[in-house]
């Protein structure tokens, strides 16, 4: 049992790689829509929707996270969490991606116009 590599190992490796690849391709389809808005959510609730065309600095209500929009590029400039991973995350442009602060459960993502209308339609 302990000894050398078996056929199943390779199969498992390929299966997992395939799953990862298909999720990646699925994401490409999901995220390729360009957006003009930044959605800020905390604890699974949307707390702000900001326009990318407007240069601004926004802090979450509890002051835990501060983000900056400058020339359409979003970056987290301050966070009170110990790991600071969100601050070091690659800044967002208007095409894709997300910035997540796990300790504070804050998530930033770019959304398009349709998505905003879609959400508005639900709340009405």
């Amino acid at each position: 049992m302990v000894k050398k590599l078996r056929f199943g190992d390779l199969l498992i490796f390929l299966l997992f790689a395939l799953i990862g690849l298909s999720v990646f391709l699925f994401n490409m389809g999901l995220f390729n829509s360009e957006g003009d808005f930044l959605e800020v959510s905390k604890d699974a609730q949307v707390i702000a929707r900001l326009e990318l065309s407007e240069d601004q600095i926004y802090s979450t209500p509890d002051g835990g996270n501060t983000l900056q929009i400058k020339d359409g590029v979003v970056s987290m400039i301050e966070a009170d969490c110990p790991d600071q991973l969100c601050v070091h995350t690659k800044p967002l442009t208007n095409s894709s991606g997300s910035i997540v602060c796990l300790p504070n459960r804050v998530a930033l993502r770019i959304i398009g116009k349709d998505e905003e209308e879609h959400i508005d339609a639900i709340t009405e």
């Binding site: 990862g20 999720v23 990646f24 999901l30 959510s41 991606g97 459960r105």
Partner: peptide
């Protein structure tokens, strides 16, 4: 926790 499957799925390939 984030309430967003899109963000979770966005991380998933890297995690795999």
């Amino acid at each position: 926790l984030l309430g967003s499957w899109q963000i979770a799925l966005g991380y998933y390939p890297i995690l795999v």
